[in-house]
Design a protein around this nucleic acid. Structure first.
Length: 486
DNA sequence: TGAAATGTTGGGGCG
DNA sequence: ACGCCCCAACATTTC
């Protein structure tokens, strides 16, 4: 009897065993399964930031432990993905590779090339959808075009057949035994990072079990309060699933199923369920955009913004990055990002609006900083959301929607719970003075131990001035365009 | 998934 | 009683 050749399950951003179509298909082949993760050094792959790398390290440890428990192993390698896979094939006699799809252009090109090369050698190459409710090419307009407006996209997606039920964790996998040394080179650099950047992960639990726990803690009570509370950054009102979703420790189909079960049990209303699933819809929509318009990563989707007069101002950019703008709500958000690798979504909108409109700094600088610092950094969501807030996206907020940071602050953080947490030097200010400390009477500031310009910065730019400047810039842009019209 | 400016309305104070 | 003004409250428009 001939020995069965092993197959590779190439884990990417699908670091889970349940609802993992590639793993299930590999298991059903009956061949010995070799789990593999590659820290990919393919040219043009965008390197992960330290927080995301740290998360990945922990998530891989969790996945490896889960695999060991089932009798399997996870090989972690670094290098150019196709070289790593070729070498494993040569060494172990693998005759098929299974993976779940990615949707960014560099990954698509890498995977397409690899698939063609494998097939040319008579080696199986099979890819699946693990991370989206619908594939980007499945949601099409009547005329075959791709949607650019979320509401019509989501209406179409909802009218389609509901996504397949999530797959169970496969049983009876024939695991491949090997003695492959793990190559964790890129992770070694993590130990040299300052501990402050990494301590932010304290409250998180990377890995499939942590993701499930995160969802279980959200359902049903917090989901019921989600639509009312999701804009309150001072309370744990959001799901905090974003990094788990990014790394695929849980899939959107699993989340939808859990919510449906809660609806049937009567612990969650239909309305609340739809509101949350709609947010998953935005995630799908961003991937849809990325697939059909990969230029979203680096270019304005509205090309008339290509001549927008962005300001080149490194010092101001730094003040934004490190939370020294003098606007407490903005600084609180940027410091939360620095310290935890995460930021509340409402605050992401506020700081994004502030960077692009008050400071007139190109959204790509904000996108790059978020990519570097966010633990949930995701190409599709990051670029899509930055283009949305900058007004340069296809279905973006109109440019003239300029957030007033003080109003947003007073509306969404009225007691200043969020600000006090992240801008402790303002902690002793009364709520009334917290949103615009520069307007507070001097004795109020003195009593709270605040000396503007010393213990806390004065506003880096004045709101009314900045608003007018941004609108002028926008007007100059549109009028310039008009001159090109017939 | 705005904010500010501008317009409208209607109640109440007052001559 | 009446007209006038003020202005809050709300609605609409504009950026």
């Amino acid at each position: 009897m001939t020995k069965l050749s092993p197959v590779i399950v190439w884990f990417r951003n699908d670091l889970r065993l349940a609802d993992n179509p590639a793993l299930t298909a590999a298991a059903e082949s009956g061949q010995p399964v070799l789990g593999l993760y590659i820290l990919d050094e393919t040219p043009d792959i965008r390197p992960m930031g330290p927080a995301a790398l740290c998360w990945l390290d922990k998530s891989l440890a969790s996945l490896a432990a889960d695999l060991r428990e089932m009798g399997g192993q996870l090989a972690v390698r670094s290098g150019v993905a196709s070289f790593v896979i070729d070498e494993l094939i040569d060494r172990t006699g693998v005759d098929a590779v299974y993976w779940n799809r990615a949707y960014d252009p560099v990954s698509i090109a890498r995977d397409a090339k690899l698939k063609a090369a494998l097939k040319a050698r008579g080696i199986g190459a099979w890819s699946f959808n693990a991370s989206l409710l619908n594939e980007p090419w499945e949601v099409r307009r009547q005329d075959g075009g791709d949607y650019q407006v979320f509401t019509s996209y989501w209406r179409a997606a909802c009218s389609m057949n509901s996504p397949l039920a999530p797959l169970p964790r496969p049983r009876d996998v024939a695991w491949c035994k090997h003695d492959l040394q793990n190559d964790r080179g890129p992770f070694r650099a993590l130990s040299s990072l300052d501990s402050d950047a990494m301590s932010g992960l304290d409250g998180w639990c990377p890995g499939e079990a942590g993701a499930r726990q995160c969802l279980d803690e959200f359902l049903p009570a917090r989901l019921m309060g989600y639509s009312a509370g999701r804009d309150d950054p001072g309370s744990p009102s959001t799901s905090c699933l974003s990094p788990h979703l990014h790394f695929g420790e849980i899939g959107p189909r699993q989340i939808v199923q859990s919510i449906s079960i809660a609806v049937e049990a009567g612990t969650v209303t239909e309305e609340a369920a739809q509101g949350f699933v709609r947010q998953l819809g935005w995630r799908d929509f961003n991937h849809h955009i990325l697939f059909h318009r990969p230029q979203v990563l680096s270019r304005n989707l509205r090309s008339n913004f290509d001549s927008f007069p962005w300001r080149d101002d490194p010092e101001t950019l730094d003040a934004w990055k490190f939370g020294r703008t003098g606007y407490p709500i903005v600084d609180a958000g940027m410091r939360e990002l620095m310290h935890t690798g995460w930021m509340h979504n409402r605050i992401r909108m506020i700081v994004g609006s502030f960077l692009t409109k008050h400071l007139l700094i190109d959204w790509r600088h904000g996108e790059a900083w978020f990519w570097d610092r966010l633990v949930d950094a995701d190409q599709a969501n990051n670029a899509g959301n930055w283009q949305w807030i900058a007004g340069t996206g296809a279905d973006a907020a109109p440019y003239f929607r300029i957030f007033n940071p003080a109003l947003q602050s007073a509306r969404h953080d009225p007691q200043g719970r969020y600000i006090r947490r992240w801008v402790p030097e303002l902690d002793r200010l009364p709520a009334a003075a917290l949103h615009e400390p520069w307007k507070a009477p001097s004795q109020v500031l003195a009593h709270a131990g605040v000396r503007l310009g010393e213990t806390y910065p004065r506003p880096i730019v004045e709101h009314a001035f900045a608003r007018t400047r941004a609108l002028d810039a926008y007007r100059s842009l549109t009028s310039r365009l008009q001159t090109h019209e017939p």
